[in-house]
């Protein structure tokens, strides 16, 4: 990690922490001045800008890469900004709607890393089902006016310190990852994160070639690869490849997911069904 990106990361995280603390509700639910909100919003926006500057900019030469990179910045900024608004909104309905913004931005990021099925699935499951369930419960359990527990936060100073310390340490360790944010001459050698099928060479250093390929061929089936024959220029079709991998390599997982859904269905019906207090034993 270079010194400039280190200072940038620290500054961005500090600004974001200050802005988020100013935007969060007061500890005792006291009203905050409008200037404090404007100041908090400005600080949070500056922190977000510093965080986005920390990311590696996209390549400028082919137009497709440039467009994909700008969309990445758009979706990342949308996800993080909507996330801050989800956490700091006083009204839970607004929180749910900002969370829908987070989900849509994440689906855009999924699209950018060739996960089209997951992008559609995330929007359908989260924005279509979970958010609607949340909104139903909010309507069911919401009172008029603003409740005092929506206007008050639980020890916001310590919470902001903890979470942004976590974010700073995660960013620090990610930037110290081999191959990223380092001078190029170090990257050119062996010192980088190995990917995919190269991992086999790490486990069989004495005999490169045939043995790792055979072992990896048994361990990693061809259905588990994103590409035909492991060649990155020949990607598999998304839904077909994902379904093939899901039903060939992870069949037990699919069965398990179905069982979990069934158990959750029964549990939700049992929990939410109103029963007479005291007469539950006789009624059952």
């Amino acid at each position: 990690m270079t010194d400039a990106s280190f200072i940038l990361a620290t500054l961005g995280v500090l600004l974001g922490a200050t802005g988020t603390y100013l935007l969060l509700p007061h500890r005792r639910g006291e009203a905050k001045a409008r200037t404090l909100y404007i100041l908090g919003g400005t600080f949070a926006a500056l922190g977000l800008l510093g965080f986005l500057l920390l990311l590696t900019p996209p390549a400028l030469s082919p137009l497709a890469d440039l467009i994909a990179g700008s969309f990445f910045y758009l979706f990342a900024a949308g996800a993080l900004g909507c996330g801050v608004m989800t956490v700091t909104s006083r009204n839970p309905v607004y929180s749910a709607l900002w969370f829908a913004g987070v989900v849509i931005s994440t689906a855009g990021l999924f699209l950018l890393i060739d996960a089209q099925f997951l992008a559609a699935g995330t929007i359908i499951v989260y924005a279509g089902a979970i958010i609607v369930t949340f909104l139903f419960v909010i309507m069911l359990a919401q009172m008029e006016g603003k409740a005092v527990y929506d206007r008050a936060a639980r020890s916001p100073g310590r919470a902001v310190f903890t979470c942004f310390l976590l974010l700073w340490s995660l960013a620090y360790s990610l930037a110290a990852l081999p191959g990223s944010h380092r001078p190029k001459e170090i990257v050119a050698g062996e010192d980088r994160l190995h990917r995919g099928r190269e991992l086999g060479a790490d486990f069989f250093p004495q005999s490169p070639g045939a043995v790792p390929r055979v072992v990896l061929g048994k361990a990693l089936r061809p259905t588990s690869s994103l590409f035909v024959d492991g060649d990155p220029s020949k990607p598999k079709p998304n839904v077909a490849g994902l379904g093939e991998s899901l039903y060939a390599d992870h069949l037990l997982t699919v069965e398990l997911a179905g069982s979990i859904l069934f158990a959750a269905l029964i549990a939700a019906v049992l929990i939410a069904n109103p029963r007479p207090i005291g007469g539950a034993g006789k009624a059952a």
């Binding site: 965080f51 996800a79 993080l80 996330g83 639980r154 979470c163 942004f164 995660l170």
Partner: peptide, 21 residues
């Protein structure tokens, strides 16, 4: 990095907010 930031923000909301939803 974006995933880590989303995780930290969610943790902040889980710790500091008082509304169950």
């Amino acid at each position: 990095l974006v995933g880590a930031a989303l995780f930290a923000l969610g943790m902040l909301g889980f710790i500091s907010r008082r509304n169950l939803i």
